Amino acid sequence: PTIVLKVSPEELKALEKAGVEIEKIEKNEDGELYITLTPEALKKAGFE
């Protein structure tokens, strides 16, 4: 199962800087950012 999270541009930068593997980055028509994370990326980021 993949996880989709709504993030701010600042959060996205912080995640990328931390080396979190982001599978997909999407922006909706309201300009909101959503990222898709794999279970492996979540484990690496410390989420179980």
Rank of each mutant, 00 (worst) to 15 (best):
P1C: 15
P1F: 10
P1L: 12
P1G: 14
P1M: 12
P1Q: 13
T2H: 15
T2I: 14
T2L: 15
T2P: 08
T2K: 10
T2D: 09
I3E: 03
I3K: 06
I3W: 07
I3Y: 13
I3M: 09
V4A: 05
V4C: 05
V4S: 06
V4F: 08
V4W: 05
L5H: 04
L5G: 01
L5I: 14
L5P: 00
L5Y: 07
L5Q: 03
L5N: 01
K6N: 07
K6D: 01
K6W: 07
K6E: 03
V7K: 00
V7D: 00
V7E: 00
V7T: 03
V7S: 02
S8Y: 03
S8R: 05
S8T: 12
P9V: 11
P9A: 12
P9R: 12
E10Y: 08
E10Q: 11
E10T: 10
E11W: 14
E11A: 12
E11M: 15
E11C: 13
E11R: 14
L12W: 06
L12I: 06
L12N: 00
L12P: 00
L12G: 01
L12K: 02
L12V: 06
L12Q: 02
L12H: 03
K13M: 11
K13P: 01
K13I: 11
K13Q: 14
A14W: 15
A14H: 12
A14F: 12
A14V: 14
A14Q: 11
L15V: 03
L15M: 10
L15H: 01
L15R: 00
L15C: 03
L15F: 11
L15I: 11
E16Y: 12
E16A: 07
E16H: 13
E16M: 09
E16G: 06
E16C: 13
E16V: 15
K17W: 11
K17P: 00
A18T: 06
A18I: 11
A18N: 09
G19R: 06
G19W: 03
G19C: 04
G19L: 06
G19E: 10
G19K: 06
G19F: 07
V20M: 03
V20R: 00
V20E: 00
V20A: 05
V20Y: 02
E21D: 10
E21S: 05
E21C: 02
E21R: 04
I22S: 01
I22G: 01
I22V: 06
E23I: 13
E23H: 06
E23N: 09
E23R: 06
E23C: 04
E23Y: 05
K24M: 10
K24D: 04
K24Y: 10
I25E: 03
I25H: 03
E26L: 10
E26I: 09
K27S: 13
K27Q: 14
K27G: 09
K27L: 14
K27V: 12
K27P: 08
K27Y: 15
N28E: 05
N28D: 10
N28L: 12
N28F: 07
N28T: 13
N28K: 12
N28P: 03
N28I: 07
E29C: 09
E29T: 08
E29P: 09
E29W: 13
D30I: 15
D30S: 15
D30L: 13
D30F: 13
D30Y: 14
D30E: 12
D30R: 14
G31P: 01
G31D: 08
G31N: 08
G31F: 03
E32M: 12
E32G: 10
E32A: 09
E32W: 12
E32F: 14
E32D: 14
L33E: 01
L33K: 01
L33A: 06
L33T: 09
L33M: 06
Y34H: 09
I35W: 00
I35K: 00
I35N: 00
I35F: 01
T36M: 05
T36D: 01
T36K: 06
T36A: 03
T36I: 07
T36Q: 06
T36S: 09
L37N: 00
L37F: 02
L37G: 01
L37K: 00
L37Q: 00
T38I: 03
T38D: 11
T38S: 08
T38M: 06
T38P: 02
T38F: 06
T38K: 07
T38C: 04
P39D: 15
P39N: 08
P39S: 11
E40R: 01
E40G: 02
E40A: 03
E40T: 03
E40L: 03
A41L: 02
A41H: 01
A41Y: 02
A41D: 07
A41F: 02
L42K: 02
L42H: 05
L42N: 02
L42I: 06
L42T: 03
K43Q: 10
K43V: 08
K44R: 04
K44L: 15
K44P: 05
K44A: 15
K44H: 15
A45N: 03
A45L: 08
A45C: 05
A45D: 03
A45H: 04
A45P: 10
G46R: 02
F47R: 02
F47M: 10
F47G: 04
F47A: 05
E48A: 11
E48Y: 02
E48R: 01
E48F: 04
E48K: 02
